[in-house]
Design a protein around this nucleic acid. Sequence first.
DNA 1: ACAAGGAGTTACCAAAAGGTGACGAGTCCC
DNA 2: GGGACTCGTCACCTTTTGGTAACTCCTTGT
Lengths: 114, 114
Amino acid sequence: MTSPRPDEKLLHCPALVATRVIAGKWKTRVLWLLRERPHHFGELKGRLPGVSAKVLAEQLQQLERDGLIQGQAELRGGVSFVLYDYTRYGRTLIPALDALGTWGLEHAAWETGR
Amino acid sequence: MTSPRPDEKLLHCPALVATRVIAGKWKTRVLWLLRERPHHFGELKGRLPGVSAKVLAEQLQQLERDGLIQGQAELRGGVSFVLYDYTRYGRTLIPALDALGTWGLEHAAWETGR
DNA sequence: ACAAGGAGTTACCAAAAGGTGACGAGTCCC
DNA sequence: GGGACTCGTCACCTTTTGGTAACTCCTTGT
């Protein structure tokens, strides 16, 4: 689906701009966790059972490329920790994410009852 | 990406419920056009340059399966017209779609200027 | 010297999404 | 009978996405 690239002048659909940066199996989940507080890589991996290091790294890189999050690397006792958090720009997306989340909560019953 | 199926108990992420039903290269665009007024198939195809009949039909079927829209078939002079419109359920998604659209409008400059 | 631990990267593979082109079904008109 | 019109399906192919397993890099502790 729909990756973030500056093509497609087809139809002016503003919602598409947003969906392109959050499309990806793990991105909304990552953004949801980061709302709570910053997480480092292993912590995200631990809280997202099923994701592999490769894929998580990819998703984080894409979010970082799109300017939504940033990772701050630090060395603690010879071990590298990268702390991921929203950028100021990324935080502007949170209200929209909340709107999606609200809808999801209200309609989760319908969704699961199939 | 992420198609609408009732699997994945991995992490409770309400926003994911919403993103799964709108994920797809043409779905947000279709929903955006339908906000304006109901459209029939050929009209949607005409206003979405680049989409093929097959893919558009697929996307519409998925939106219909997910209960967001419905198509009403009518015969006009030996020619079948299917008029697509939001269901009541689908309309509940519009506020969330608006939130995404608002963000897209505000940040379209950043997006295109790369 | 070497294991340990976090954060990746690389090569390879499988599944899903999207795209193309041809074709069918129904009805009306010439 | 033979188009024309609209909606939609079928077989096939390409691209994108996600997944697995092995491996690197760096430093501290034994």
